[in-house]
Amino acid sequence: MIQGEFDDIGQLFFEIDLISASGESFSVTALLDTGSTEWLAINEQDLEALEWPRVETRNVVTAMGETVFNTYLGKVVLDAQEYTLEVVAGSDLREVILGLPWLQSRRLVVDRQ
C-alpha cells in the first residue's frame, strides 16, 4: 500500500520514483489528479536528467483546453513496483501528476482527519 499526504488545500500527493535511462532513481512528490486521463505527466525540464526516449507528439485535452504534448517512454516505481509507460511532458506543468488510469488497477482509500 502506498501512503499519501494532503497539502494545506486538500490536494493528495504521493512519493514515487522516476528511473532515468541510465538506471538512476529520482524520488519526487506527485499530485493525484483524477481529472487527468494520462498515467503520468511531468514538466519538460525534468526530461533532461531522465533522458527518456521520445515516442510521439499528440493532442491531449486538459482543463485549459486542448494542448499538444510530447510523449516519452518512462520508467516509474509506484508502491514498490516498476512500470514502463508513456509519459506526457509539457512546459506548463508545475507538478508531477499521477492521472486517473492508476486507479483502474489500484484501490484508493482516504482517511482524512
Score class of each variant (00 low, 15 high):
Gly65Thr: 10
Ile97Glu: 00
Leu85Asn: 00
Leu73Cys: 08
Thr67Gln: 13
Leu73Ser: 11
Leu78Gly: 05
Thr62Trp: 10
Thr84Ile: 13
Thr62Asn: 07
Ala80Arg: 09
Thr71Ile: 04
Ala89Trp: 02
Leu73Asn: 09
Val68Tyr: 05
Val88Tyr: 05
Glu66Asp: 12
Thr84Pro: 00
Glu95Ser: 09
Asp92Ser: 15
Ile97Leu: 15
Asn70Lys: 15
Val96Ser: 04
Met64Asp: 15
Gly65Ile: 10
Glu82Ser: 03
Met64Val: 13
Glu66Thr: 14
Leu98Met: 14
Phe69Asn: 06
Glu86Lys: 13
Leu85Glu: 09
Lys75Ile: 01
Phe69His: 13
Asp79Val: 00
Glu82Lys: 05
Met64Pro: 01
Val68Lys: 13
Val77Ala: 07
Gln81His: 11
Val96Gly: 01
Ser91Gln: 14
Ile97Lys: 00
Glu82Asp: 03
Ala63Glu: 06
Glu95Asn: 14
Gln81Ile: 01
Asn70Ile: 02
Val77Trp: 00
Gly65Tyr: 11
Asp79Gly: 15
Gly90Leu: 07
Leu73Val: 02
Leu78Glu: 04
Ala89Glu: 02
Ala63Met: 11
Ala80Glu: 15
Glu95Lys: 12
Tyr72Arg: 06
Gly65Phe: 11
Lys75Asn: 12
Val87Ser: 04
Tyr72Trp: 15
Ala80Val: 06
Phe69Ala: 00
Val96Arg: 04
Thr62Phe: 07
Ala63Lys: 08
Phe69Leu: 13
Gly74Tyr: 01
Asp92Cys: 12
Thr84Asp: 04
Val96Tyr: 10
Thr67Asp: 07
Tyr72Thr: 01
Val88Glu: 04
Val96Trp: 03
Glu95Gln: 14
Glu95Tyr: 12
Val76Pro: 06
Glu86Leu: 11
Gly90Tyr: 08
Leu78Ile: 14
Thr71Cys: 12
Val68Thr: 13
Thr71Phe: 11
Arg94Asn: 12
Tyr83Thr: 03
Glu86Met: 08
Leu85Trp: 11
Val96Gln: 01
Thr62Gly: 08
Ile97Ala: 01
Lys75Asp: 10
Leu98Trp: 03
Leu73Asp: 08
Val96Leu: 09
Ile97Val: 11
Leu78Arg: 05
Ala89His: 05
Ser91Phe: 10
Thr62Lys: 10
Met64Gly: 12
Val88Trp: 02
Leu93Trp: 04
Ser91Val: 13
Met64Leu: 14
Glu86Asn: 14
Lys75Leu: 00
Val88Arg: 02
Ala89Pro: 04
Ser91Thr: 15
Ser91Gly: 08
Thr71Trp: 03
Tyr72Pro: 03
Leu73Pro: 00
Ser91Glu: 13
Val77Cys: 09
Leu93Thr: 09
Glu82Met: 10
Val76Arg: 05
Tyr83Pro: 00
Val88Leu: 01
Asn70Thr: 10
Ala80Asp: 10
Leu73Ala: 08
Leu98Cys: 09
Phe69Lys: 07
Lys75Glu: 11
Gly74Arg: 06
Val77Ile: 13
Thr67Cys: 05
Val88Ile: 14
Val77Ser: 10
Asp79Tyr: 02
Ala80Thr: 07
Leu85Ala: 11
Ile97Cys: 04
Gly90Met: 10
Ser91Cys: 10
Ala89Ile: 02
Asn70Gly: 08
Asn70Phe: 08
Tyr83Ile: 00
Lys75Phe: 06
Tyr72Cys: 09
Val96Met: 05
Asp92His: 15
Thr84Ala: 11
Gly74Ser: 11
Ser91Pro: 02
